[in-house]
Design a protein around this nucleic acid. Structure first.
Lengths: 225, 225
DNA sequence: CGTTGTGTTGACTGCACTCAACAATTGTGG
DNA sequence: CCACAATTGTTGAGTGCAGTCAACACAACG
């Protein structure tokens, strides 16, 4: 179950964080394959490497002692993690599907920063984009209803994948932990959205948006059910 | 009600984001006074200036069309806003108490970045710190109970103010909008925490932590009521 | 002194959670 | 290839935590 058979071709996320230019040119990285479910980094570990995903997708999450989990983000091909952050990883990272990625040395990056002035400015811009996204999520988690959360999630996915036929790489549990809900609530909402004609559910890893306008109004709290 | 009488001496937050070194040396800023309640920047506005607070405190928040509000952060003396972010403000900023602050040109900062390579690295570190805090909040908003949220809030304040006798500059409504709760729930929790001996409430702008250990266990979800 | 804004408390409601059974899908070994 | 087990997702019934609505208390202020 290693580096072979792992290019499963699923591309859940478009490269919305174009760190290709930044990473991958400083040094030759090490290509790694990880089977689905494998933990790649653990929250609190010192940051020694950063990673760029080639194929597959991962979840970033924080957890509470009793097992509760908050997924911070899902990443897909061309996304990086470990790049932003000071000394320690703020979250754990696990493979959702089988993943191929390239590992680079953080030290090497830090050394390069000193010579290359534009680099830390690029990193800064990356951090700003993530911060913006994080603040958006605070609004979602703090002030939106379950319905609005799932609608927002689907609209976000559609923007990332640039299509209304979404590939859903993650499980219902992952979605629940991303939106601050339970698996049952997520499942019920999917069914409801289907019943009222907002989406279609051909299979559990696919969602087709049938009324993006109504869905995005719902996401922004504009109108009722 | 302008620049005079505005040094009300309340210092709700310790300078946990030491951007003094960074800002304030590039150019002479303009000192401004704002009465409590005044809006300083509006979500979505282009970023033309950044600000450093001299005295008083402010709230940063995002809102939904129907009036729901999520407070992103509270800032106090020596904290900056407008510094991190690309083209537009991601949130509105309002004075909680009367505020004195210094306004600097963002353009000037951006020009300086090109000469001074260490600067964008400092900005990057600042952004990382904020991102870390934001991710912590996601866990709080997505996965913590009302009780755990308020406990976390009080422990955070104690760390920022470096004392267990907290000055609470913001209203109950602000706290509610920060924690993703209602004003009634916040009020009830304050009363409950007092009843069970976790805190004392001498007046509405003061909280004394009487059992920080139990409170911080509560915040981390370690034990029950 | 009344007025207004802010905070507290009580009674009740409802949205999302819990518990539980069942259905569908995926994986495994014969 | 099928039978079975394990995993994941769906649906229903009932509960409870936090929200809503409403009355009251208390300051701050003109």
């Amino acid at each position: 179950m290693a580096t072979s058979l792992m290019l499963d071709g699923n591309r859940s996320f478009e490269p919305r964080k174009p760190c290709q230019a930044l990473a991958g040119h400083l040094e030759l990285g090490v290509t790694l394959g990880m089977p689905a479910g494998k933990t790649i980094v653990i929250e609190g570990d010192p940051i020694r490497h950063y990673f760029r995903i080639v194929s597959g997708s991962v979840r970033l999450y924080k957890s509470v002692v009793d097992g509760r989990r908050q997924i911070i983000d899902f990443l897909g091909p061309n996304d990086c993690f470990g790049l932003i952050g000071l000394s320690n990883h703020a979250y754990s990272v696990e493979a959702i599907s089988d993943v191929v990625m390239i590992r680079y040395s953080k030290r090497c990056l830090e050394d390069t920063i000193e010579d290359q002035p534009g680099l830390s400015n690029q990193l800064f811009r990356l951090a700003c984009a993530e911060l913006d996204q994080a603040q958006q999520r605070m609004l979602l988690l703090g002030r939106k209803s379950a319905e609005e959360r799932l609608a927002s999630f689907l609209i976000d996915l559609a923007e990332r994948q640039e299509t209304t036929c979404l590939h859903i790489a993650m499980s219902r549990q992952d979605i629940a932990d991303y939106l601050g809900l339970t698996i049952e609530t997520v499942s019920r909402l999917f069914s409801r959205f289907k019943r009222i004609g907002l989406i279609d559910l051909p299979d559990r890893h696919a969602v087709i948006l049938q009324d993006s306008v109504r869905l995005s109004n719902l996401a922004d709290g504009n109108l009722a059910t």
